[in-house]
Simulated assay, not measured.
Amino acid sequence: MPRAEWNGEVIAESDIYETVEGNVYFPPESIKREYFVESPHTTTCSWKGEASYYTLSVNGKTNTNAAWYYPNPKPAAQNITGYIAFWRGVKVK
């Protein structure tokens, strides 16, 4: 079962997930919402669409824009609608 960890805490864990371009995308219900803060940051992928971001706040530390998701992806990426992926030091095992 994949799980995401950062700053000593498990922040997401699920038997259900999608893997795209080497990134594990967790369903929204699998994240521990208390660690996630909406970010105004966005990026655009040519085939997935516009990504929105979360900043992580765990045990007094902040990891800016460390999680992203596609709220309304393009048709080719519909399987990851709302699913969350990580970078910037978040370990996914």
Rank of each mutant, 00 (worst) to 15 (best):
W68F: 09
Y17D: 08
T55F: 08
W68M: 02
E13S: 13
E18G: 03
E5H: 07
A51K: 04
A76V: 11
V10D: 11
I31G: 02
T64D: 04
A85V: 05
T19P: 02
E34T: 11
Y70K: 05
Y70M: 01
I31W: 14
I84Q: 03
P27I: 10
C45K: 02
K61T: 06
Y70D: 06
V10P: 03
P40Q: 08
I11S: 05
N65T: 01
P2W: 08
E29D: 14
F26I: 08
S30W: 06
P40A: 13
G22C: 13
R88W: 00
E50K: 15
T19I: 15
W87F: 09
P27Q: 07
T42H: 08
W68R: 05
A85S: 12
Y54T: 00
V90A: 06
V58Y: 05
P75D: 12
Y69M: 11
Y70F: 11
T43N: 03
K74F: 03
K32C: 05
V24R: 10
E5C: 03
K48R: 10
A51G: 02
W87G: 06
Y83Q: 07
V58I: 13
H41T: 15
S52T: 06
K32S: 12
G8R: 10
S30Q: 11
D15V: 09
V37Q: 14
K93A: 14
F26A: 06
N79E: 13
T81E: 08
A76P: 00
N72Y: 12
T42K: 13
N63H: 12
Y69L: 12
K91T: 15
Y54N: 02
S46Y: 04
T43F: 04
N23H: 14
N63S: 15
A85F: 08
V20I: 14
S52F: 05
C45Q: 05
Y69R: 12
V37E: 14
F26S: 11
V90I: 07
K61S: 08
K48E: 11
N72S: 11
P71T: 08
I84D: 00
Q78C: 00
G89Y: 05
G60P: 02
W6P: 01
P71M: 11
V92A: 01
N63Q: 13
A76Q: 13
S46D: 12
V20Y: 12
N59S: 12
N72E: 14
G22T: 10
P71D: 05
G8Y: 09
A85E: 07
S30I: 09
E18K: 15
I31P: 00
N7H: 13
